[in-house]
Structures are given as C-alpha cells and as structure tokens.
C-alpha cells in the first residue's frame, strides 16, 4: 500500500507500466475514442456468434420483400403510376439502400426510451464525448449490414439495367443521391426519437413516419394521391429521397409538373433535414435535463 497517491492526480508523473498494445505516452484522440467504441460493439456481438449469423441472414428478409412486392405488382400490370419495371426498380434501389444504411447507422436511436430507463443515457452523459454518437456506436446493430449490402445490390443492378444515358452529372448524382437519402432517413430517425424526450410512449408515431416513409419512397409518388401524397412527398420531403433523383437519372420529366432541376437539388433537402434533426436533438436533450428521469 505504498504511495497510494499514484492512483490519481492529472499532473502526476507516473512511470509507464508497459504491457499495453500502444507505446507509453501516446494519447488517443477523439476519433480513436469513437473507433474504440465501434470495435467494442463488434466484439460484444461476436460473443453471440451463432445468433449473430442467424440475424445477419434473417435481416435481409424485409428488404427482399420490398423488391418482391414490386416484382409481383408488375406481374399484373405493365406500368405503375406511369413508370416501367426498370424505372421503378431504380426508385426501389435508391430507397432500400438509403433506408437500410440509415437504419444500420442511426436506426437504433428509436431505443432512446430504453437508454433513459436503463441508465445508459446518464452513463453516456458523464463521459467526455458527444452523447448521440456514443449511443449510436454503443448499440450499432451490425447484423443489419446484410440489408445494406442487399440494398446496394438492388441499386447497382437497377441503375445498370435501366438504360440510363450516363453523363458526368448523372454519375455524380448516382453516388450522392443514395448518401443524401441515408442522411435524410437518419435525420428522420433522430427527429422522431427526440419526441420520446417529451412523451415516452411515442414509438408508434415515430414508426409510422420512419417505416411509412420507407414504404412511401419505394414507389413512384404518382401512385399515391391527394393529401397523403402532399404530406409525405412534400410536407415531410420523402419525394426527394428516391423519386426526384430517379427522374433526373432516367432523364424523365415529372408527370406531376415539377421542373427537371428538382431532381438535381433533391440531395440538398437532406442537409435541411439534418439541420432540423440536430436542432431537435439539442432541444430534446435540454428538455431531458430539465425534467430528469
């Protein structure tokens, strides 16, 4: 029990003990901290290897179903809302990749009420890192990787077989649009999750927006009508995820009459959504701090 003081004191000089994988004295940075959290999550899930593998394959199911639904629909009709099978599959590809990637990276934030209840939220708040990235990385559902791979496959196959007249702009758009869709869906996940800061049982409402939005973006918006289309397509902005970028890629005019450049600026809508999500999170977390748990 000699010199117990070496336990603490930030200014104290202590001899390196060795044994660590890194050389003594090297200080990890913030990015290293996040990378470590991600690595821990991967190792935690590897602890349940068999169930992880089952989940990995089981998770593709829902995404495959989206594609199968479209194929079945085209078994009885040659056009859907004025779009051919190949054109519709471009929309499906953009939508399923964007949603699957956002669901992988951000989707688990819908478990926010659980984080609050189990105390993980408080534990995260006493650490020197931002709360949202910590929560996302500590509960990253890696088994959902299979959906992203499948979504990407659908996207690549659909744009490859849709007879797109490739220009430099379209090449850029086919890269940017799915990523913008990811950001858009991620923002929807975060924004709807913050509702639970005020109203713990808000899960169903959140689901109707996020999963409703995913279904909405899987078809040309022309198949929907009236106030429903107005609300989801332009009120909530889901038309900018897959429909308008697909029109620009395919070189088609919008049957609903919006100008052609809308498809090219559609990715910008994701930035607006991200800004709204960031604001909602900040306000929500402040509300948590003023109500406690």
């Amino acid at each position: 029990m000699a010199e117990p003081g070496t336990l603490t004191g930030p200014t104290r000089v202590v001899p390196p003990s060795g044994g660590g994988p890194e050389p003594a004295g090297r200080t990890p940075g913030v990015l290293g901290a996040y990378r470590a959290l991600l690595g821990a999550q991967a190792r935690s899930q590897a602890a349940y290897r068999a169930s992880f593998l089952v989940d990995l394959f089981g998770n593709v199911g829902a995404t495959v179903f989206d594609v199968v639904t479209v194929l079945v629909l085209f078994g009885v009709t040659r056009e859907l809302g004025g779009f051919t099978l190949h054109e519709t599959l471009v929309i499906v590809g953009l939508s399923s990749f964007a949603f699957a990637a956002a669901d992988l990276l951000v989707g688990n934030i819908e478990r926010l009420p659980r984080y609050v209840r189990t105390g993980l939220f408080d534990a995260v708040l006493v650490r020197p890192l931002a709360a949202l990235p910590q929560l996302l990385l500590m509960d990253l559902p890696l088994r959902k990787v299979s959906r992203v791979v499948f979504g990407l496959g659908v996207l690549v196959a659909s744009v490859g077989s849709a007879g797109i007249h490739w220009t430099a702009g379209r090449v850029a758009l086919v890269v940017v649009a799915p990523l913008a869709g990811l950001v858009f869906f991620g923002s929807v996940f975060v924004t709807t999750a913050t509702v639970s800061f005020y109203w713990i049982d808000s899960g169903e409402l959140a689901n109707s927006v996020t999963y409703g939005g995913r279904d909405f973006t899987s078809y040309p918006v022309t198949v929907y009508g009236g106030w429903f289309r107005a609300l989801f397509a332009y009120g909530l902005g889901f038309a900018f995820v897959s429909y308008h970028p697909a029109l620009a890629l395919l070189g088609r005019a919008d049957p609903l009459g919006l100008p052609g450049w809308v498809g090219w600026v559609a990715p910008g809508v994701a930035l607006v959504a991200a800004a709204i999500a960031a604001l909602a999170w900040r306000v929500g977390i402040r509300h948590y701090r003023s109500t406690g748990s």
Binding site: V14, P16, E22, G25, R26, T27, A33
Partner: peptide, 15 residues
C-alpha cells in the same frame, strides 16, 4: 482509456 484519451503509461500505472 480511449474515451478519456489517457496516455497509455499513465493509464497502465493507475490500473
């Protein structure tokens, strides 16, 4: 150690 960005030597000694 990564979360708090502590140098390996200091961390090892405290541990």
């Amino acid at each position: 150690r990564h979360v708090y960005r502590v140098p390996a030597g200091e961390h090892g000694a405290r541990l």
